[in-house]
Write a protein that binds this DNA or RNA. Structure first.
Length: 827
RNA sequence: GCCGGGGUGGCGAAAUUGGUAGACGCGCCAGAUUCAAAAUCUGGUUGGGGCAACUCAGUGUCGGUUCGAGUCCGACCCUCGGUACCA
């Protein structure tokens, strides 16, 4: 009598077994190779969504597979618990963000446990807990000491009705998402970390990140954006000279105007006497801070009635204020060459400004400047006096030399990367641990909170209205005294960007319980992370900040390697009906309902089978049922065969049993099994789990038709194949694999079973099938002895009857033989 | 706008390196089983033509390289992710 597949019972039993045996608790072991597998920690938003399930299943499959390869695998999990959604939820549910967050964590942790992930829960961390963020504050003190943290003015989105700063996400069509008020740009003093000091190293080391996807490496290179150019000055009467940077000094003689930011001192000054300029500046205040908007908005400008002196010709160039130039980025002023820059060209066309060509095609081809700018670097300089006829590089060098000689400019390497602004005018985050000696929060008043007074605790029991950070209204929080004195002082009420917490959590996992230091010696045992798994949406920001933070930690002696993540896998999104699953679209599928209905193994199997990890995955209810059907078939196959395979154990005690197989059916089954195994091993290595599952299905299909009771050979082969099937599916569907391993009478835990080896002798075949093409089109196929020479293959191909039909009476020009694959006859 | 992905049957996809396009699964069709249905099992399933053997076409569009292109090169279209305060 065969029992039914009952996932609820099987999964609960396996999970209890792992828990009772502390199967996934791990410590440093000098005798075994370590393997640190990390998945991006979730924001505790309420329930797991399918994106989490996918991410964590991929990480778990990698972890369990590496364990079967014999490694000491560490797989931790934690909570990225600070953030904006908790504040929104707090308003909606009238609940403090802390309470909401902790309840979500409790629930989601239960969900993760139901999915059977092999986490070492002893290492769990929660970023909103003081024992975690204390060390973040301590680290910030070190950054202050090194001059790596500093304050400067920076723009934010200001909601004039709510009197609060808005995140870009909270701005919809230029208006505050709650108030509907037009959002204004406002400059406030904020904390920055000098990531630009590491720009060069962050860029150069991308070359060494061979375990990262090329797309991510390219995106990071472009984000850092190294460029070589020159920086030079336009003298302005009675004013500070205007500094600009350009990567095209070869076009310097084509400058016909200069643009400065609307908030530039020159513009503000001009506005005092010209109301049109004042109005323009006021208008510019309403564009918000997102780069996308800046680049796609209508480019507008107004002449200031001021000129700058061209550094080569001393020609007076008109200065404009423009909405697309930003004060905080670069020098707040740009030169404009409409003939050779498309944006300048469009601006010049619109305002009737001169387009002055100074580059021509070397061959003398004409360019139509009524159509577009000529932006090539393949041209030569013209209409530029002493620089005429030089190519790009020669002109670059000549102009740079001229500027340097005349003390009007210099060569400069520039980065697109900007320093990391870490101040957030929000409550639910890690308090920035500084105090100000006076009410004024200017730079020279900053005093660090001494290490022995850390952590600066975030009050958790607050009333949260959403209009303003409760810290600003809480004198118990902001009123303090200067360190070591009784002089009254005020605390910083801004909190850190939540990327601060996620930039080092992977290191803290290595040191559970460390309460005397941020990290300890255990960090260097586990780090760097061997495999990091997370969403592609983090390709630049999180992954760049984490790399930066790691280098900061290295330079403080906390870790001794250069890069935190050796291998990176970015999994694709989970889609339903062609678009991303999200609450706003109303197309979410609750993982919990799927676990309840089919069990965790089915959900995991479907996730791995539906598409390769790096591609997006289309949710399909029917296909989930199909995954469940496969597990049922596997279950009943083992129930049907277990008695005969158990008895075959005796046969298998002989070391050379495989060589003695005489039954042809058994031989074929074994060949298929080991061919599939070879493919599976390759696919595990390249993390193509969808084809691993497809191969397992093929093996099951074959085993279903194979009779183990025919003779001893068949029983032995059946057993070998079933054990291999069990092992290759164990990382993906661990619960059912755990139970079936027991049913097959195998000793020990499947989680520690040795990964199977391919038997090369089993795969070998006497004959080879070759495709025959005539002129590249498939026409026939032949089977030849595996030992055939190239000449023999050619002869049999040409002699093939079907091939002859297409060769017809044409002369054979060439015969191409691809060994083991095909023959192409060219006529 | 800029940077980076993706586009292959009705659907999810497969195809180490340029070498049999569509493995595996879903759906659908037919059959078996059943009083019937569900479940299960067996077979079929890119499109056109043909009774069939077979044959023509086919991997977003257009063009190129090659004995041979889903794969390489050029241009374009659509779509998704990021764009520095969502995480």
């Amino acid at each position: 009598m065969t029992s039914q597949y009952n996932p609820a019972e099987i999964e609960a039993a396996a999970q209890k077994y792992w828990e009772d045996n502390q199967s996934f608790t791990v410590t440093e072991d000098p005798d075994r190779e370590k393997y640190y597998c990390l998945s991006m920690l979730p924001y505790p938003s309420g329930q797991l969504h399918m994106g989490h399930v996918r991410n964590y299943t991929i990480g778990d499959v990698i972890s369990r597979y590496q364990r079967m390869l014999g490694k000491n695998v560490m797989q931790p999990m934690g909570w990225d618990a600070f953030g904006l959604p908790a504040e929104n939820a707090a308003i909606n549910h009238k609940m403090p963000p802390a309470k909401w967050t902790y309840e979500n964590i409790e629930y989601m942790k239960g969900q993760l446990k139901q999915l059977g992930f092999a986490y070492d829960w002893n290492r769990e961390l929660t970023t909103c807990r003081p024992e975690y963020y204390k060390w973040e504050q301590w680290f910030f003190n070190r950054l202050l000491e090194k001059g790596m943290a500093y304050k400067k003015m920076a723009v934010v989105n200001w909601d004039p009705v709510e009197q609060t700063v808005l995140a870009n996400e909270q701005v919809e069509n230029g208006r505050g998402w709650r108030s509907g008020a037009l959002v204004e740009r406002r400059e406030i003093s904020q904390w920055f970390i000098r990531i630009t000091a590491y720009a060069e190293e962050l860029l150069n080391e991308i070359d060494n990140l061979e375990g990262w996807p090329d797309a991510v490496r390219t995106m990071q290179r472009n984000w850092i954006g190294r460029s070589e150019g020159v920086e030079f000055l336009f003298a302005v009467d009675d004013e500070e000279p205007l500094e600009v940077y350009t990567t095209r000094p070869d076009t310097i003689m084509g400058i016909t105007f200069i643009s400065v930011a609307a908030q530039h001192p020159l513009a503000l000054k001009a506005a005092q006497i010209n109301p049109d300029i004042a109005a323009f500046i006021a208008e510019c205040k309403t564009t918000h801070t997102a780069e996308e908007e800046l680049e796609t908005m209508e480019k507008r400008g107004i002449p200031l009635g001021i000129t700058g002196s061209h550094p080569v010709t001393a020609e007076q160039i008109d200065i404009w204020a423009a909405n697309f130039v930003l004060l905080g980025y670069g020098t707040g002023a740009v030169m404009a060459v409409p003939a050779h820059d498309q944006r300048d060209w469009e601006f010049a066309k619109k305002h009737g400004l001169e387009i002055r060509p100074v580059i021509r095609w070397p061959a003398g081809d004409q360019h139509d400047y009524d159509e577009s700018a000529l932006t090539t670097k393949q041209g030569v300089v013209c209409n530029s006096g002493e620089f005429d006829d030089l190519d790009f590089q020669q002109a670059f060098d000549a102009v740079a030399q001229f500027l340097e000689k005349n003390k009007k400019g210099r060569r400069k390497v520039n980065y697109r990367l900007r320093d990391w602004g870490v101040s957030r005018q929000r409550y639910w985050g890690c308090p920035i641990p500084v105090v100000y000696a006076q009410q004024d929060t200017a730079q020279d008043q900053v005093i660090a909170v001494p290490d022995d007074r850390l952590p600066v605790l975030l009050p958790e029991d607050v009333e949260f209205s959403g209009v303003q950070s409760p810290l600003r209204r809480d004198p118990d929080f902001y009123r303090t005294t200067l360190p070591g004195a009784h002089t009254p002082a005020v605390r910083e009420t801004d909190t850190f960007d939540t990327f601060f917490e996620s930039s080092w959590y992977y290191a803290r996992y290595c040191c559970p319980g460390a309460d005397q230091s941020m990290l300890d010696a255990r960090a260097n045992h586990w780090l760097p992370v061997d495999q990091y798994v997370g969403g592609i949406e983090h390709a630049v920001l999180h992954l760049l900040y984490a790399r930066f933070f790691y280098k900061l930690m290295r330079d403080m002696g906390l870790v001794d390697s250069d890069e935190p993540f050796t291998n990176l896998l970015c999994q694709g999104m989970v889609l339903k009906d062609g678009s991303k699953m999200s609450k706003s679209r109303g197309n979410t599928v609750d993982p919990q309902s799927m676990i309840n209905r089919y069990g965790a193994d089915t959900v995991r199997l479907f996730m791995m089978f539906a598409s390769p990890p790096e591609q997006s995955l289309e949710w399909n209810d029917n296909a989930v049922a199909g995954a469940h059907r496969f597990l049922r078939r596997w279950w009943s196959l083992v129930q049907r065969n277990k008695d005969s395979v158990r008895s075959a154990k005796i046969t298998l005690a002989r070391v050379d049993w495989a060589c003695r197989i005489t039954d042809p059916g058994a031989k074929n089954m074994r060949r298929l099994t080991h061919r599939i195994l070879a493919k599976v091993i390759r696919d595990y290595a390249r993390i193509h789990y969808n084809t691993v599952v497809a191969s397992a299905m093929e093996l099951l299909n074959a085993l279903d038709k194979f009779d183990p009771d025919k003779n001893r050979d068949c029983a032995a082969v059946s057993r070998d194949s079933l054990l291999i099937l069990n092992k290759i599916l164990a990382p993906i569907t661990p619960h059912i694999a755990h139970r079936l391993w027991l049913e097959l009478g195998e000793p020990g835990d499947i989680i520690d079973a040795a990964w199977p080896c391919v038997d090369r002798d089993a795969i070998a075949s006497d004959t080879v099938r070759l495709m025959i093409q005539v002129n590249g089109k498939l026409r026939s196929e032949i089977t030849v002895p595996a030992a055939s020479t190239r000449r023999e293959i050619e002869e049999s191909a040409i002699a093939d009857e079907k091939a002859r039909k297409f060769i017809h009476r044409n002369a054979i020009k060439k015969v191409i033989v691809v060994p083991g694959k095909l023959v192409n006859i060219v006529v």
